[in-house]
Simulated scan of single mutants.
Amino acid sequence: MNIFKSHFWYQKGQRNGIFILIILIIIFQFIIVFVDFSPEEKVNIYAPKVMSFGYQIDSLRKINLENRKPKIFPFNPNYITDYKGAQLGMSLVEIDKLLAFRKTGKFINSKKEFQKVTTISDSLLNSISSYFKFPDWVVKRKQNMQLSTSRDTRLFTEKSKYIVTSTDINLAVKEDLKTINGIGEKLSERIIKYRSKLQGFSTPNQLYEVWGLGTEVVVKLLLVFKVVKLPNIQKSNVNTVSFKKLLKNPYIDYELCKKIFNYKDEVAELQDISELKNIIGFPIDLYDRIVLYLVAE
């Protein structure tokens, strides 16, 4: 009984305050339960303003999704890697076909040729070909080929009754080359001299590197002469070659030669010739031609 009494030991004013507090709590409970606080005017979700706001949200979501997608920048399709090909949507078989083609030392110079080599579908070609970026000389060659006419084609061999001794560009003599319209004594000598410097043409595209030989003339030349047999190039061991001998590589200048030797000093020995790509400032677009003359042993 004393336990219950202890709860009423408050003064009269305190007991009245507690009583009023209890009444207020009960009143608030009734208000919360029985009074409707929802607005009288209901929001119409199909109202023009509401729908416009919804459209804005949807458009912002789409922009956000587009920004999250990996961006594709212009690239040379000759240097597509396994990872890059997978990103573009190519299958492993299609990528392997491209890599096998590149190992032959040949280059792809058009989107049609890319599809022929890889056998990708028309839809995939259309979606990625807009990002293809070929070297400037390839673009110029295409423009010149489009401007050529059937009359130009007849001029390739109209120079004389001379019978060409060989259509292999690596075996052709000066007189053979001079049958092409636009090639005289000096240019034919220059082609043969450059061929000797290269130890033979490994790819027809190397003819575009001959100084003074215009794109239009090269196009005419390649309609008659081909690389029938690959040259037997004497390769140098990059790990033991001297600075002077490495500098004789037609695609290596003094600065690049220094970089290669500095890199060799860092790694002691190249295990694979592809390590050249690790050199800062190495011309990747010339890699396939540089390694025609080098090996890592």
Rank of each mutant, 00 (worst) to 15 (best):
P250I: 10
P250K: 07
Y251P: 01
I252L: 11
I252Y: 09
I252E: 11
D253Q: 02
D253N: 15
D253E: 06
Y254I: 15
Y254E: 15
E255V: 07
L256V: 02
L256K: 02
L256D: 01
L256P: 01
L256Y: 03
C257Q: 08
C257K: 03
C257P: 03
C257S: 09
C257V: 00
K258F: 06
K258W: 00
K259T: 03
K259R: 12
K259H: 11
K259Y: 09
I260P: 08
I260A: 08
I260N: 08
F261E: 04
F261C: 07
F261Q: 03
F261R: 05
F261A: 05
N262F: 14
N262H: 14
Y263W: 09
Y263G: 02
K264P: 01
K264H: 09
K264R: 15
K264Q: 10
D265Q: 12
D265Y: 06
D265V: 10
D265H: 11
E266H: 08
E266P: 05
E266F: 14
V267Q: 09
V267M: 11
A268W: 03
A268Y: 10
A268D: 14
A268K: 15
E269R: 14
E269F: 10
E269M: 09
L270Q: 02
L270A: 01
Q271W: 02
Q271V: 04
Q271G: 15
Q271K: 11
Q271H: 10
D272Y: 04
D272F: 10
I273N: 02
I273E: 03
I273G: 04
S274W: 08
S274P: 00
S274F: 11
S274R: 13
S274K: 12
E275P: 00
L276G: 05
K277P: 02
K277Y: 01
N278S: 11
N278E: 15
N278F: 09
I279R: 02
I279G: 03
I279M: 02
I279A: 06
I280K: 07
I280F: 05
I280V: 00
G281W: 08
G281A: 11
G281M: 04
G281P: 12
G281L: 04
F282H: 05
F282Q: 04
F282N: 05
P283K: 07
P283Q: 07
P283Y: 11
P283N: 08
I284F: 10
I284M: 14
I284D: 02
I284N: 09
I284K: 13
I284L: 14
D285P: 06
D285Y: 13
D285K: 14
D285G: 00
D285V: 13
D285L: 12
L286V: 01
L286T: 11
L286I: 07
Y287F: 14
D288R: 04
D288Q: 08
D288F: 12
R289S: 08
R289L: 05
R289T: 02
R289H: 00
R289A: 03
